Simulated assay, not measured.
Amino acid sequence: MVAPATVPHTTHATATRPPAPRTTVVRAAAPTTRPPVRTTTAAARAASNCDPNYSGCVPVDSDVDCEGGSGNGPSYVRGPVRVTGSDIYGLDADKDGTGCE
């Protein structure tokens, strides 16, 4: 018996496709700054030219009096304002914690 002849294995050529183009997605960068936060801390009132000893904006000045009172200013405030620290301008005449009432 004769051994069958061996035939080398060949692969058939297949059609090749060019690679699909890559899509690049560009995303917007996150904002680097945050919007300002409104606060009512003593530091915020002082920074905005409001005296931190009062709730309600009492301007920082050499003297502040109640609007419509007998004081001579140079600044005036319309009340009522709450005294949260020292009543440095004497706005709370009856010492009940509320000035210019």
Rank of each mutant, 00 (worst) to 15 (best):
C66V: 07
P52M: 01
G97C: 03
A42N: 08
S55K: 05
I88L: 09
A43L: 12
R78S: 14
P74V: 00
P52A: 06
D63M: 14
R38G: 13
A42Q: 11
D94R: 00
G69M: 08
T41Y: 03
M1N: 15
P36N: 05
C57I: 02
C100K: 03
A47P: 00
P21F: 01
T39F: 07
P8T: 10
N72T: 10
T24L: 07
S70E: 11
C50E: 01
A93L: 13
M1K: 12
A5K: 15
S86E: 15
T39N: 08
S75V: 09
D65L: 08
P36Y: 08
A93W: 09
Y76F: 14
E101H: 07
P59Y: 06
D92R: 00
G73R: 06
R27C: 05
G69E: 07
A93R: 13
A29G: 09
N49R: 15
N53R: 04
A93T: 15
V58I: 01
P80V: 05
E101T: 10
K95D: 12
T6F: 15
Y76M: 09
P19W: 07
A15T: 14
P31G: 04
P4Y: 14
R27A: 05
R38C: 12
T14E: 09
G56K: 02
T41S: 05
G79P: 04
V2H: 13
V81E: 02
N53M: 03
A42E: 08
P36L: 12
A30K: 10
G99C: 01
A3D: 15
D92F: 01
K95P: 03
N49V: 07
R38L: 14
V25P: 03
D51Q: 05
H12M: 10
V77E: 02
A44W: 04
A93H: 12
E101F: 08
N72E: 10
A46R: 11
R34Y: 13
A30Y: 10
D87E: 01
R38T: 13
V37D: 10
P36S: 09
A20H: 11
Y89M: 02
A93M: 08
A42P: 09
A28Q: 09
D92C: 04
D65F: 11
Y89W: 00
R82H: 08
P18W: 02
N72I: 10
Y89R: 00
V7N: 15
E67Y: 12
T16G: 10
N72H: 12
T14G: 09
A5R: 13
V37P: 05
R78T: 11
E101R: 07
P4T: 14
A20N: 11
P8M: 10
Y89K: 00
G69A: 06
A47E: 00
T39R: 11
A3N: 15
V25Q: 07
D65Y: 12
A47R: 08
V60R: 15
P36C: 08
V37K: 12
A20G: 08
I88Q: 13
G56E: 03
S48H: 11
V37T: 13
T23C: 06
T14I: 15
D92I: 00
P8F: 08
T33I: 13
T24K: 04
G90Y: 02
S70Q: 10
D92V: 00
D51K: 03
S75N: 10
H9W: 12
P80W: 01
V7E: 13
N53Q: 06
G90N: 05
T23M: 04
D96I: 01
A15M: 11
P31K: 13
V64Y: 00
A29F: 07
D94T: 03
A43C: 06
C100R: 03
A46Q: 11
